[in-house]
């Protein structure tokens, strides 16, 4: 989002302008939902936390600083809500694993590309889902959502140095998971081809 537009939207949100809320909602709803869905791996949880994220925004709208950056603000709230949810439910990371969460994409280049693309997506989703939450979240915030490491560090309430280390470990873990996934699927693929 253009910075000038963002500043203008924040100013209008502070004064309770519903049209400004609509603009922010339309710009970030799907991104926040995707983030929560990939964190939680459960649609219902992601939807409830998404709603709570927006309710937090409107309840705090008047107190937003004029220079608030909306994406880091929203991702921080969403991330904190999910951690609170996990603590409240005493969830550990047993929820990891692959679930067919993703609806079909609307525009696909060709059947082959579709199959190849979905295969890759599916492998990455599975590998991401297998990571511990604290590693998964940094990958999602930085690589998927484009937050700067400084913004992601603030969102995760860690120092930039700690985030750097966590990100590095997360990448290594993801690479290992992907490699392990390839080894698991390779014999099946060969069998199917022969």
């Amino acid at each position: 989002m253009d910075r000038d537009l963002e500043i203008a939207l924040v100013e209008r949100l502070r004064s309770g302008d519903p049209a400004a809320f609509d603009a922010v909602y339309d710009a970030y709803r799907a991104r926040i939902y995707s983030f929560l869905l990939r964190l939680s791996r459960h649609r219902d949880v992601a939807e409830d936390l998404l709603e709570e994220t927006w309710l937090r925004l409107v309840s705090k709208a008047a107190d937003l600083r004029p220079d608030t950056r909306l994406a880091p603000w929203l991702f921080t709230v969403a991330r904190n809500l999910y951690w609170s949810y996990c603590r409240a439910r005493r969830l550990d990371e047993q929820w990891r694993g692959s679930i067919d969460l993703w609806p079909a994409r609307s525009a696909e280049p060709s059947p082959f590309d579709t199959a190849a693309g979905r295969e890759l997506e599916s492998r990455i989703e599975r590998a991401l889902g297998a990571l511990p939450l604290r590693y998964r979240e940094v990958l999602l915030l930085v690589a998927a959502e484009g937050l700067t490491p400084t913004e992601a560090a603030a969102a995760c309430a860690v120092t930039p140095e700690a985030l750097r280390q966590r990100l590095s470990r997360a990448r290594a873990m993801l690479a290992r998971e992907l490699a392990a996934g390839e080894r698991r699927t390779a014999p099946v693929t060969r069998e199917a081809v022969s």
Binding site: R29, A30, R31, Y33, S34, L37, R38, R43, A46, E47, L50, L101, W102, P103, R105, L120, E121, I124, E125, L128, L139, L140, V142, A143, A144, G146, R171, L174, A175, L178
Partner: peptide, 16 residues
């Protein structure tokens, strides 16, 4: 610059 990051960044945005 990382291909892994590119792959994550290319994951579809899912709407509800």
């Amino acid at each position: 610059d990382d291909r892994l990051a590119d792959a994550i960044a290319s994951l579809p945005v899912v709407d509800l």
